[in-house]
């Protein structure tokens, strides 16, 4: 049998702890862009301007280059309007990954929702029907998909964040 001396157990545990700690701190540098991206995106601000909904590809929000006002400026809205027209990107994330959505709003109506990046550690099939549900309900709150809570929560957070950005101040 593989009985192990206590000294060896302590030694191996210490070695593993050292390797783990080294890798953990080495990946902290990798963590910083993740965190800054997430925090930047979670704060609705004027800096995160809406993007042109007709654009074929959507640049990441934190890299949005200043574009021409004709393309990117929100449609002048009346004071009664709840949201500015345009396309907005939101990200929802948790410990199981993140989802990025692009929400298009016209005349206070959600006209399109697209999952522009799916980076959960689960299957994307869990959330494939949720954009249609948002369009039907005109709300970020969707029915929970049984057993897919983390993906659904990330999706809802992403849509909510996009809507927060679109909100007419």
């Amino acid at each position: 049998m593989a009985k192990m001396n206590k000294k060896w157990v302590v030694l191996c545990s210490a070695a593993l702890g050292a390797i783990y700690a080294a890798e953990y701190f080495a990946t902290e540098a990798q963590a910083l862009p993740h965190n800054s991206e997430r925090s930047q995106l979670s704060i609705p601000s004027e800096a995160s301007s809406p993007i042109n909904s007709a654009a074929p590809t959507l640049p990441p929000v934190n890299n949005v280059a200043p574009s021409s006002p004709a393309e990117s400026a929100p449609t002048p809205s009346s004071s009664k309007k709840m949201y500015n027209d345009g396309s907005y990107i939101g990200i929802g994330s948790n410990r199981r990954g993140s989802i990025e959505v692009t929400v298009t709003i016209q005349h206070d109506k959600i006209t399109d929702v697209e999952i522009s990046r799916f980076a959960m550690h689960y299957s994307d099939r869990d959330v494939v029907g949720l954009p249609d549900e948002v369009l039907q309900k005109q709300s970020a709150q969707v029915d929970n998909v049984s057993g897919a809570t983390y993906s659904v929560r990330a999706f809802e957070d992403a849509v909510q964040e996009a809507l927060s950005q679109a909100k007419n101040a």
Binding site: E23, Y24, T27, Q30, H34, R95, G97, R117, H121
Partner: peptide, 27 residues
């Protein structure tokens, strides 16, 4: 570590999937 630093060139196409960052942290 070996895979993530590219000593063995195995890549992942999707962001986060296969990140060593995630692998070392909860959950």
């Amino acid at each position: 570590f070996v895979i993530s630093v590219g000593i063995v060139p195995i890549g992942s196409e999707t962001l986060h999937s296969g990140d060593i960052f995630d692998a070392l942290r909860p959950p």
